[in-house]
Structures are given as C-alpha cells and as structure tokens.
Design a protein around this nucleic acid. Sequence first.
DNA 1: ATTACTCATAAACCCAGCTTATGTCGCCAT
DNA 2: ATGGCGACATAAGCTGGGTTTATGAGTAAT
Lengths: 309, 309
Amino acid sequence: MSNAEEQTGPPTAGTLAHRVPDLGALELLLAVARLGSLGGAARELGITQPAASSRIRSMERQLGVALVDRSPRGSKLTDAGALVTDWARRIVEAAEAFDVGAQALRDRRDSRLRVAASMTIAEYLLPGWLLALRAQRPDTAVSLHAGNSTVVAERLLSDEADLGFVEGLTVPTGLDSVVIAHDRLIVVTAPGHAWSRRRRPLEASELAKTPLLLREKGSGTRQVLDAALGGLARPLIELSSTTAVKAAAVSGAGPAVLSELAVGEELAMRRLVSVPVEGVALARDLRAVWPTGHRPTGPARDLLSLTRG
Amino acid sequence: MSNAEEQTGPPTAGTLAHRVPDLGALELLLAVARLGSLGGAARELGITQPAASSRIRSMERQLGVALVDRSPRGSKLTDAGALVTDWARRIVEAAEAFDVGAQALRDRRDSRLRVAASMTIAEYLLPGWLLALRAQRPDTAVSLHAGNSTVVAERLLSDEADLGFVEGLTVPTGLDSVVIAHDRLIVVTAPGHAWSRRRRPLEASELAKTPLLLREKGSGTRQVLDAALGGLARPLIELSSTTAVKAAAVSGAGPAVLSELAVGEELAMRRLVSVPVEGVALARDLRAVWPTGHRPTGPARDLLSLTRG
DNA sequence: ATTACTCATAAACCCAGCTTATGTCGCCAT
DNA sequence: ATGGCGACATAAGCTGGGTTTATGAGTAAT
C-alpha cells in the first residue's frame, strides 16, 4: 500500500516513530555501549544474542549509519555511534522519568508514600525526585495525586496524602511547610517577537497593559502574576494548561508569563526567549507541606530530604 | 516462557520498553491532547480512527490509568492524562532531537550545509540548533561530522565542511571565529561524597592533588583543566567519553570535572552536585569557526545566527 | 588443536498494531 | 420527531518486526 508513493526513499519519510528506533532498541544500544558486547547486552536485557544482533543491525539500517564496530572479540561504538548513543540516552532518561511518574499515578492504594503536588511541581520536579528516591530506596511504592493548593491541603488534612508540594504565595492553614526551592515567573516570547530584541528591561506598567497568553484564573501561576501586577494582568487568550500556553508562545501568538521551570528547555533550544522585566516581584517559593505537627517520617522524610539541595 | 516467574503482575515487571508506551503511542497522545479528538489525531498521523482508539486504550491498560475522557462529541484529557501527556512530551522532544541529529549524521553527500563540530557541542547543542533551523528553513539538508578541533579545522580547510564549532582554548590557524556561547568546567560528585557537603569553596591546590575522574588526554575538556591547573590534573581513572565519566561520577566513583553543558540535567535531578572551586579559570568559549576570509553565507549563515542569543 | 569467546545467518513462530466493515450514541438541523 | 453527521467502540482478518532455536564461522589464548 505505502510503497507506491514513497519510492524516493527514507530520508524524511513517515512519522517520528518511523525514523527513531523504539525504546527497546535504544536501551539495547546503551547496554552495548556500556558492556562492549552484543551478547552481553542481550544477556542483560533478557533476550538472545541473535535478537540483539538483528535489532542493532536493523537500527543501523533505519538510521543509515554504522553504529558499532563488530569484531570477533567484542563490539565498540563507531564515532557516529557514540553520538547517537548520547542522544539516545536523553530519550531513555525521559522515558525513565515518564515511567516512575506513571507508576506513581497508578499505585493509588497500597503505597507507602502518598504524595499530593501542584501541577507544575508534579510535571517538572517530581519525576526527578522519584527517580532519586527509587535509586536509594528501591522498594518504596509511591502514589501521586496532582491538584492545586486547595486540593493538596484537603488530601493532607483528610489523611489521603503523607506529603504535599505547593507553589502558591501562601501556605494553606493547618499545614506546616518548608521552602524547598525558588521559582520565578518570566516573560517569554517567540524569537521573532519585537520584545525579544529589546535592550532595556520591560516596565511593570508595560507588562500590565499588554495582552498576554495566560493560564486560566485560579492557577498558581496566574495568582502570582495578578498579585505582582495588582490584579491587572490582561489576557490575550486564557489557556487551560502550561503546555498550551507554551505552545501558543512558541508559535508566536504573543508574549506569555510562565514558570522558569516550565520553559527551561525551550530557552535552551531557543524556541523561546526570555524578556527581562523590572519592578515586579515574580519570584515565588516552592514548598513542601504537611499537617501541622505531623513532621514527615519514614519514606516522606526520605523524599523530603531529596528535594533540598 | 516468561510467564511462569512473573505471575505477580505488571507493577514493576520487564524492562523500560515494556512499561513505557512506544513513540507512536506517545505522539498519538499528544495529537489527541492538541486536537481534542481521537479521530482527528488519527487523521493527522495517517492512521484510521479504530487504530487510534485501540492504541490509546492499550496505552491506558499498560499504564493502569485512564488518560482521556471519551464522549460522543470529542475526547478530553483526564487530570492524570494531562500529566502523562506532559511527561510524554519530554520523550517526544528528545526523540525529535535524536531524529534531526541522526539525519545529519547520515546525509553526508548531497547536503547543502556541512557542519563539523566538537563532541560536546555536537552532543548537547547542535540538535537544538538543527531543530530551530529546520523550523525556519525546512528544506535545508544538513550533514554533521564530529571530531576534535584539529579534525574540524582540517575539514573546513579542505572544503569538506562549511561551518565548524570548537571548544578549545585556541582557534586553529587559518580559521576565523566568533564566540557563540560560554561554558564552564565544574567539579561534580555524587550527592553522598564528602565534597558535596563542603561549606567553603575548594582550593585549586586541593583539586590538583586529588585523583579525579577524567576524559583521556587530548580531549578538549582535559586540555582546559590541565591548563588551568598547570598540567597537574591527577587521574583516578581515565575514561573515553563524557558519558562514561558522568556515569562513574553518578555511581560515586569519585569527583569529576565536566562541562556545565554535560551535567545540566544530572544537577537538576540531583544525581550529581556541583562543588564550588576558587582560584581556577575553568571557563572556556565555544566558537563557530570558518576558513579565514570565507564569511559564512546561505545556510551556514542561517545556522550561525541561530547559535547566538 | 582444543576451547571459549565473539558475531552472523536461517527458518519458524507469535503477537502488536493495522485496516476494513460495522454498530452505537449524542447533538443539531430541518 | 427524524434524518444526518460527528464522535467513539467492536469484530475479524492480515501483516511484519522481533523473537527463539539451531547452526556456522572467525579470533585468541591455552
């Protein structure tokens, strides 16, 4: 069926999944890189040596690049293979974060550590913490519930969660807290936007009177911004997730105000540029919270200690 | 075969690839999130609606979490689904970087822009640049060759490359250059290490007399460190790739000296901690280079302009 | 030479995901 | 109300990529 139209060959054909090897193959490549042997890597992943051999070969065919130098006494990465392996590692690391997060979403019932966290924290910080926790306490089953500050407080107070994380300006009553990190909201635009070429920092008043891409009212981010500007933030569009705001900003729809955490990668890749602002307090604390008096112990304490640094 | 021993169920069974949906499924999920419709997402990816439906369903089964709320007039993400989608986006973005990099490694011949870059730059910076370039000039075929400064210079001077990137202390003769970014070498250890709890910055002399995890002699990183310490860096082990050094450091083998670029993620995830150092100049410039006189034009100029910010 | 590694090849199998063909539900316009 | 149109679900059959088992072939060290 799909032979007729794409007779030109595979350079830029099909979707991402067709051009990028699947996770199994990438894991295998990492194992080969580490162990210096196809057979060894196969053993580690619990498959047979011919399976590994064939899989690496088909990955090389797919990419059009030789990845490993085979010899009768082992396999070593090609120069190109080393580069590909490093890029592959990023994918696998993202997959590990996904995995640990998804597991926490599922466990729900019988978990020893029940965490409630705000969206931004759950999205950007928690997977890393959970990976670290798994590394030092492999058998701690964690469950995660994401929601705004109010929800986090409710779950803690009704003993549905052992430890919470919030990002608001105030700590809900009935909870003790400790600051674990700082976050700043920053103004970002697509690289083409006029603001991206500004010399002088933006004035608060300019920011207040310019229509912005914003999260809906009620989100932690929006609260902080409204407070900083005196309730004056003017929406160009209101979107329902950080991600939607980012996407709109990247596509040039206008300037957006987002957590530093959320746009780190986009800034590094220059899909967005940061616009300096002066005269506005856009910093906010990220806090771990727990019911007043009930200092975290056991697994909750372990996790908490990972989040401070 | 593998049924007998793992009758406990899927909580933490199998390898990563068994617990994480494949790229196709993740792309599909992102499309569903964006379009608010299974059928629409299916159309966008060039598959049929039942295929999309079944794939999302099996992803939900695999993760043990409901991801989308289906209704006769569209599909919307669950709360958990929104979180999963955000984590999925990270994987897909890493895959895009992989893809654009791998394509550049292959093209070789008929490409309009031939780039030669040092390992660190090719590893961490180039994929982002290439994605940005593809976004604004979709039909620029790029080929990439990675090697040390000497190799980059050779390729430029023999007209095998149009634009180069180097990270050494000096610019090879015969080349013009412009600084595009700054990098620092930093001292890192696993979180457990004694140095990770230091109050006062490390003295250069302490660093020089402590055995370190290092790249082999001849690497750009090693050169800068040796120069900064006066040729005195003392190896605990010499490893052949940045990655190997990182892995050793993470596993607690000892302190390592690595590019800031290389350890950004590990620091963010607290798999490594940075140890402040004083009295040593560990900064270095990253430069774009080209044959003296031949100012970059066309695609090379496009790429160059993306790298400055 | 024998042994012990390595990787490659060949044939048979199995399952995940695809398509085509249909069914069901809710909304909207006539 | 009643078609019609959108959405998603279900069922049956096909295909291909990845697997295993079983072998072959090269190198190195004993």
